[in-house]
Nucleic acid binder design. Sequence first.
DNA 1: TTTATTTTGTGAGATATGTCACATCTTTTT
DNA 2: AAAAAGATGTGACATATCTCACAAAATAAA
Lengths: 225, 225
Amino acid sequence: MKNECIDCECVLRSSVNMKDCQIEMLDGHHAVVKFKKGDSIIKQGVFSTNVIYLRKGMAKIHIAGPSREQIVRLVKAPTYLGLPTTFGDKINQYSVTAVLDSEVCFIDLEVFKRLLGENKEFSSFILMELCKSELEAYRRCASRTQKQISGNLADVLLEFSENLFGADQFTLPLSQSDIGNWVDAGRESINRALSGFIQDGIIQMQGRQVMITDKKMLKMISQNG
Amino acid sequence: MKNECIDCECVLRSSVNMKDCQIEMLDGHHAVVKFKKGDSIIKQGVFSTNVIYLRKGMAKIHIAGPSREQIVRLVKAPTYLGLPTTFGDKINQYSVTAVLDSEVCFIDLEVFKRLLGENKEFSSFILMELCKSELEAYRRCASRTQKQISGNLADVLLEFSENLFGADQFTLPLSQSDIGNWVDAGRESINRALSGFIQDGIIQMQGRQVMITDKKMLKMISQNG
DNA sequence: TTTATTTTGTGAGATATGTCACATCTTTTT
DNA sequence: AAAAAGATGTGACATATCTCACAAAATAAA
């Protein structure tokens, strides 16, 4: 188990020069856990003293809204999760659920904080990540409310294709109902919009397998839809 | 001009032990500027090498959406602005416009970064701020889309009353049109909802002066509206 | 395999908001 | 002070989505 961290993307990913003693500190205070798709990784409202590093897989971040649970973001490994828990009361501020089989590293909060203090590169890396998240949140907010369903659905498909999977063919990790929840639309509306895309020859589907056949059109719809 | 920073909330606010040399560094690389309400403080798309500290006043953060400009947040002093500009290409990622007469401190980006690196307390303070922002963005996202107009309007009024002004009586710093833009509603709908509130004795208005007379009801509407 | 449970596919009607159209008022500019 | 620009009321109508209702598939559980 010793020196597991040295090879972990957790460290590499931050492209940070960790000192040996810092890596050892990590090694001594973490635990790697596997989650199957559908498993809950972080539960909103629960006390926690860990930062979570998603090593492999994909997860949805969802938060309790006034009337129902709402998906606010879909993330793929590698990435940190649960950072907002670090401040204040150590209560998880949102939930995270695996949407693909995933592997996760629990890092002790105190160790994480100490590392932030000791390693400038590391802390500036985390800072950048947070900036990007905030920006993304703003952008999505503006985008979602200004487009109608087909536009938002196009966005989702493009996000899968370009960011999450990096391929024109992929298997949807979310149900239509979840997609609807994510983009603020009803499940039925998503279904109809999806059917429309198939009809128009923009995508092909068999089960949850999606193949984008007319990406240009999809981008068109994403922009003016 | 020397040692202006020592008294500035900019430093106090971060409740950080700045070394004298660090404060001097700030002193040498900043500029205080006043903005009248309506003035643009940050323009999206423009190159910038400054972080901005809002010392006094209030401002709206807005971002270009696919079809129009969208207000994503309203902030009051004291707070930092434009942090996302720090990463990447130094292009402002959103716009900020004063909604009240404001006072702003432009801090050189490099100096700011150096400070982050040198002062752990400072960087962890900024980190916390970013975490909070991200969370707030998620919450608002979930909230806005799950409520209808009266609920969102109630939220806005409560936000003014509790967070922004800390009083039950205040002057709206935004036009109804802006409020609508902020909560994803048409100007007309906001107007009608506002009239409804007045009719129901929840608020009183004369011009943009608002007085909340039935806060309980307002909170009710905020929750189940 | 059989039985539950969760997803997906579609229709028809209800509705909260958006949109357009004007008529005041206010505030700013000239 | 006059003119121009912007902000606010308010009505009538159009419409994109939601909601409800059911049936068929697909998945998971027993």
